[in-house]
């Protein structure tokens, strides 16, 4: 049970997807201006990523590998993700309109987001089993949410600060992300990934 936990912490903190793999930068720049939308996006992404991790792992181990169709991995994963997001959207819409209202607009954004496909591909590359991959996906989602929350908090503050004109918007966000990546480097080494 230790290994899945280590994988979880690694994905969430030490090898944070945004700050060390640079995955999921589009929403990071786009949705991170307000804390409320960052929370919505974070939850939606965490949910989709955990589900993706489970389903792509099953598809990979039960269908693609036994049939030696590894070269179709990428296409299959993308399809799985697209279908999954669509499905999740439908279910949430039926089951909880209020949750749909909160998360709905973020879901389509996630389909074409590299963080989800990156998660599926990395998990397959590292040969994680189902439990490990589930923790990996959940950890990656939590890490994404943490980074998004932190940066949105800082950006809300920046609204009222005097940022040089040329650096307004994306450049200052990237600068902050750089400093955050610096800070997160301090976590590296607290656990060792196998």
């Amino acid at each position: 049970m230790v290994r899945p936990l280590i994988i979880f912490i690694a994905a969430a903190i030490t090898n944070n997807f945004i700050l060390t793999y640079f995955l999921g930068l589009c929403p990071f720049l786009g949705v991170s201006a307000k804390v409320s939308s960052a929370i919505g996006m974070g939850f939606a992404a965490t949910f989709v990523m955990t589900m993706t991790a489970i389903i792509t792992n099953v598809v990979d181990h039960l269908i693609l590998r036994p049939l030696h169709l590894d070269f179709l991995q990428m296409i299959v994963f993308i399809f799985v993700i697209a279908v999954l997001v669509q499905f999740v959207e439908m279910v949430i819409k039926k089951a909880s309109p209020s949750l749909y209202k909160a998360l709905g607009i973020f879901l389509p954004l996630i389909t074409t987001n590299c963080i989800v496909l990156g998660l599926a591909l990395l998990g397959a590359m590292r040969n994680y089993n189902l439990i490990e991959n589930t923790f990996f996906g959940f950890g990656a989602g939590v890490g994404f949410t943490i980074a998004l929350l932190l940066i949105s908090g800082i950006r809300e503050e920046l609204e009222v600060r005097d940022v040089p004109k040329a650096l307004k918007g994306a450049p200052i966000t990237l600068l902050i992300a750089g400093l955050m990546a610096f800070a997160f480097m301090g976590f590296s080494g607290i656990i060792t990934l196998q």
């Binding site: 640079f22 994306a170 450049p171 990237l174 600068l175 992300a177 750089g178 990546a181 480097m185």
Partner: peptide, 11 residues
């Protein structure tokens, strides 16, 4: 390292 990437692109 990752921070350098962010800083360079920002600049």
């Amino acid at each position: 390292l990752p921070p350098g990437a962010f800083l360079t692109l920002a600049m």
